[in-house]
Simulated assay, not measured.
Amino acid sequence: MNPLRFRRRALAAALTCITLGLSMGAHAQAYPSKPITFIVPFAAGSATDQLARALGQSITEQTKQAVVVENKAGASGMMAAQAAARAGADGHTVLITTNTTQAANEHLYKKLPYDPVKDFAPVTGLGKGGQVLVVPAASPYKSVAELLAAARKSPGKLSFGSGSSSSRVAGEMLKQLSGTDILHVPYKSNPLAITDLLGGQIDLMITDTSTGVPQVKAGKLRALGYSTQKRSAQLPEVPTIDEAGVKGYDMGYWFAAYVPAGTPAPVVARLHDLLVAAVKSAPAKSFFDTAGSEAWTTTPDELAKFQAAEAQKWGKVIKAAGIDPE
């Protein structure tokens, strides 16, 4: 090759790399250039909503840009995930979600309006927690054993509500491992199910602690068991469901952040740093302490691998629970 032509090509390649690097740097420096929208798959007052608002407060303090929380409850989070997937890939629309949309729904529904892997770029994990089995304070059942004895005596008579896939699968796992027949009643969100539980329309539910524990503390609900293998720091006197006699019972949940696929890597990196700092902030710490959950952050790659493992795990649990895709 002509030496002069070779040098020209080398110079052109170098300039391209420099230009690309400057462009990527500009993406990160300019972000966020306008208010950020957090899309939440559940209703206001839910655990995910509370966490999103705490994180948003911190990010606003860090960037001086407003963070708007948009609740799109219903259809087990599918409407919210679809809306987030279709948003502009510039980092200004973020899906603050859970295992419901990213690991469970693909096994619960025959057809999703979004792809939990291909439609999103993982940003970071946000937190992990457990759930609490609750009944109305006036319920005759004082323990998991009493509740399940009644369920066995009258199959199909008792009912449990759920407003998320985590809550639904937790209830189905209880049925499976205890050999009981309890009617499932679906809701758009856990707070709505709590309302009917308080009103006596359903008999029990297994809900996230941020939704259930305040009602327990207020004396309106009675906690019978905790869903993970370790007791809740908020309810240390309440046995785990495993301890209460349903051996092998273990069902937690997690929160994470995603942006639409195609979002520039520098923007993802900048958002990741903002969210990691937000998870460590006072508003988020207050949420985790109140909700009885714990902070948990990851790199985007770590979240992708974790999500893949969780999807496989939830698939096995859902299949074993005998839940047919809708």
Rank of each mutant, 00 (worst) to 15 (best):
M1N: 11
N2P: 14
F6E: 14
R8W: 12
A10C: 14
A14P: 06
G21E: 00
M24T: 00
H27W: 11
A30H: 12
A30P: 03
P32E: 04
P35S: 00
I36L: 13
T37V: 15
A43K: 14
S58T: 08
A75I: 05
G77I: 09
M78N: 06
R86F: 02
G88M: 14
A89D: 14
T93G: 03
I96Y: 09
I96P: 03
T101M: 14
E106S: 07
E106P: 01
Y109I: 05
P113L: 05
V117W: 00
D119S: 14
P122W: 00
P122R: 00
Q131D: 03
A137R: 01
Y141I: 07
S143K: 11
V144A: 12
A145V: 13
R152A: 04
K153G: 03
S154H: 15
P155C: 08
S159V: 13
S165L: 10
S167F: 07
V169A: 00
V169C: 02
A170I: 02
K175I: 03
S178G: 10
K188Q: 15
K188L: 14
L192C: 09
D196T: 15
L197E: 05
L198S: 04
I202Y: 06
T207M: 02
D208Q: 11
S210C: 04
V216S: 00
K217S: 09
L224Y: 07
S227C: 08
Q229K: 15
Q229C: 08
K230S: 14
K230D: 08
R231P: 05
R231L: 05
E237H: 11
I241G: 02
I241A: 03
A244I: 12
G248Y: 11
Y249K: 07
Y249A: 05
A261F: 10
T263S: 10
P266G: 04
L271P: 04
L271S: 06
V279F: 04
A282K: 15
A284F: 11
F287D: 01
F287P: 01
W296N: 09
T298F: 05
P300C: 10
A304I: 03
Q312H: 15
V317H: 02
K319R: 11
K319I: 06
G322F: 12
I323P: 04
I323S: 01
